[in-house]
């Protein structure tokens, strides 16, 4: 892990196992696709934050506000200087998503447990159904910041000036053969294809079989040499709803040290359905 641009944000299952008792300074947070998985057993002393019912506000199709975020953190005994460590199912998709949302509200010390829940279980480590309770804190949340989140208008300008766009969906979704990912019909779009100029790097290429991140060398091979992305340039990542792309955002920002990379969470469910938004279909054009 030491080779990564910001190695401190990635911690091992060993590290977490050693720090499970340090609840005064560290809070371990499980974030899953499955809303009941935490209840069946989780890391000792870990709390549960759900990407959908805790972090999103359906009424405005946006994230919760700073006040609600502060309340959520306070309820879980998280202070502004607490080290929060995220882990979850599905190769840490939702852990990365929650990490990104915490960064949006300006939380300083966020980390990911490499390999997530699957690695922890595979190593035969203990899971418990006991839900911990922590004394409430007075968390102060910032208004969500814009430097890691791209809105539609900004993506349009970015596209027009030929900025780097990374589409992290499956090749079938990128080419335009299907309008949703297998298994997620509810997150479809009326049109299939991608944002003009985007390259296609499915998010899973950054992960190993066991859910851990690939080495820096392997990641550079994919994103830098193969795709020609540059850590100094402005980059925007997107998928369908912004969760797979938060995984790639994490890889580019923290493991490869990209200076300015944003997650476009409106993603294809917004762009693909938007009146007047241009799209491309088929394979990327050869240069």
């Amino acid at each position: 892990m030491a080779d990564y641009a910001h190695p401190e944000v990635l911690v091992s299952t060993d590290w977490v196992a050693r720090h499970l008792g340090d609840t005064d300074t560290i809070r371990v947070i499980e974030s899953n696709e499955d809303v009941l998985l935490y209840a069946t057993g989780h890391l000792h002393n870990a709390v549960h934050i759900d990407w959908q019912t805790d972090l999103q506000d359906d009424l405005v199709r946006d994230y919760i506000g700073a006040q609600e975020f502060a309340r959520l953190c306070s309820e879980h005994g998280i202070r502004n200087d607490t080290t929060v460590v995220f882990y979850g199912d599905k190769s840490n998709w939702w852990a990365c998503y929650a990490f990104w949302v915490f960064k949006l509200f300006g939380h300083k010390d966020c980390r990911i447990m490499d390999g997530g829940r699957a690695k922890w279980s595979a190593e035969g480590r203990v899971l418990t159904p006991d839900v911990p309770a922590y004394p409430s804190t007075n968390y102060e949340a910032q208004e969500p910041g814009g430097d890691i989140r791209a809105f539609h208008a900004e993506v349009v300008r970015h596209m027009e000036r030929g900025g780097a766009l990374v589409d992290v969906r499956s090749p079938q979704e990128y080419i335009g053969e299907v309008t949703h990912m297998p298994g997620y019909p509810q997150e479809g779009a009326l049109r299939g294809g991608h944002i003009p100029g985007a390259v296609n790097v499915p998010w899973s290429r950054a992960a190993r079989e066991d859910g851990t991140f690939k080495s820096r060398e392997m990641l550079e091979e994919i994103y830098l040499q193969e795709q020609g992305l540059t850590p100094k340039g402005d980059t925007v990542a997107y998928c369908r709803i912004g969760e797979r792309s938060s995984h790639t955002w994490f890889v580019l920002r923290y493991l490869l040290g990209f200076k300015n990379v944003k997650n476009y969470d409106g993603s294809w469910t917004e762009w693909g359905n938007l009146v007047g938004a241009p799209i491309e279909r088929g394979e990327p054009e050869a240069e």
Binding site: V35, D50, Q52, T53, Q56, D58, G183, Y184, P185, Q186, E187, I241
Partner: peptide, 8 residues
């Protein structure tokens, strides 16, 4: 369950 999980 939240909106996105209902339809699955």
């Amino acid at each position: 369950l939240g909106m996105r999980r209902q339809q699955g």
